[in-house]
């Protein structure tokens, strides 16, 4: 059974690669755009490099490096939240969603199939942008920990996947989730310490921040890349991320199935 599911995931990846290559100009330009966006953000952040920000002190005090790690993590967060729903939306628009549903592809296969290729692309972009940040802005990063950093990023993706699955389910019913997810995303950004250091949050908000997976991911990533902390040092954060993934993914799965059942009841599975 697992072997067959792996074959389906490979078929999906092959399809995604062939499709992306057929849109080679769009594919290359979107990667260049993502890279330039990150570098542009780094350049903006460089203006504030001289500032002494207390929140950055535990991570070495370089404010630019502090912001850069936040930016790359945020890229992974938004990818985890939107990748499944946006892939399903594309399949619904092209009309292939219903025909895939008709087959023997299960939800997990579908999710891994639509996201693994993009995940690989995203991770590669992040590595390249970090290398460029070091080369262009002289940011000091612990590249010897890059595999550990990638592990944090991938676990961040999976911790967001449960919410992403719920979003995908809602998309199947409503066909467009509008700005609801954006509001939710902003709320998480406010709470996790990417925009405002946790120390400056009101006490109630600070309590809530402990419920947001990104808070732990951000701390782990900054420790790995900026301080040079090893696996043992970030293990507690990784365990919390794992537990949150194990809680959120089944909830997202359940929400997805409730939404799928509703779409089948309303007969809107093949519509967009």
């Amino acid at each position: 059974m697992v072997r067959r599911d792996i074959k389906k995931v490979i078929a999906f990846i092959r399809k995604e690669v062939l499709t992306s290559l057929s849109y080679r100009y769009a594919f290359i330009s979107s990667m260049v755009f993502s890279l330039i966006s990150l570098l542009f953000y780094f350049a903006m952040a460089d203006v504030f490099r001289a500032a002494i920000v207390p929140a950055a002190i535990p991570y070495g005090g370089d404010y630019l490096a502090f912001l850069i790690t936040g930016a790359v993590l945020w890229q992974m967060v938004t990818f985890g939240l939107y990748s499944v729903s946006s892939s399903f939306t594309v399949e619904m628009i092209t009309g292939t969603f219903e025909t895939i549903y008709l087959s023997r592809a299960n939800l997990l296969t579908l999710i891994l199939g639509v996201s693994l290729f993009s995940l690989a692309i995203n991770v590669s972009l992040i590595v390249v942008s970090l290398l460029l940040a070091q080369a262009i802005f002289g940011v000091s990063l612990h590249f010897e920990n890059i595999l550990l950093a990638l592990m944090v990023l991938v676990m961040t993706y999976f911790s967001m996947l449960g919410i992403g699955m719920a979003v995908a389910g809602i998309t199947i019913v409503t066909k467009s989730v509008g700005q609801v997810v954006s509001i939710f995303t902003l709320l998480m950004a406010f709470l996790c310490g990417i925009l405002i250091p946790l120390e400056l949050l009101p006490p109630e908000a600070k309590q809530l921040s402990y419920l947001v997976p990104i808070t732990y991911a951000l701390d782990a990533l900054r420790n790995v890349l900026l301080v040079g902390t090893g696996f043992e040092g970030i293990l507690p954060s990784l365990i919390i991320l794992l537990i949150m993934s194990l809680v959120l993914i089944p909830i997202g799965y359940k929400v997805f199935f409730i939404c799928l059942k509703r779409a089948k009841k309303e007969g809107t599975l093949g519509q967009y």
Binding site: K7, L18, T19, T94, T96, S103, R104, G270
Partner: peptide, 28 residues
């Protein structure tokens, strides 16, 4: 199954054979 709106149920960037191979994998 052949549903209505056939033109919308394929991957247009793929060839006929590639489409069938993809769906074959979906059917094990």
């Amino acid at each position: 199954v052949v549903l209505g709106e056939r033109s919308r149920s394929f991957y247009w960037r793929l060839t006929a054979k590639q489409n069938l191979e993809f769906y074959a994998a979906m059917y094990d």
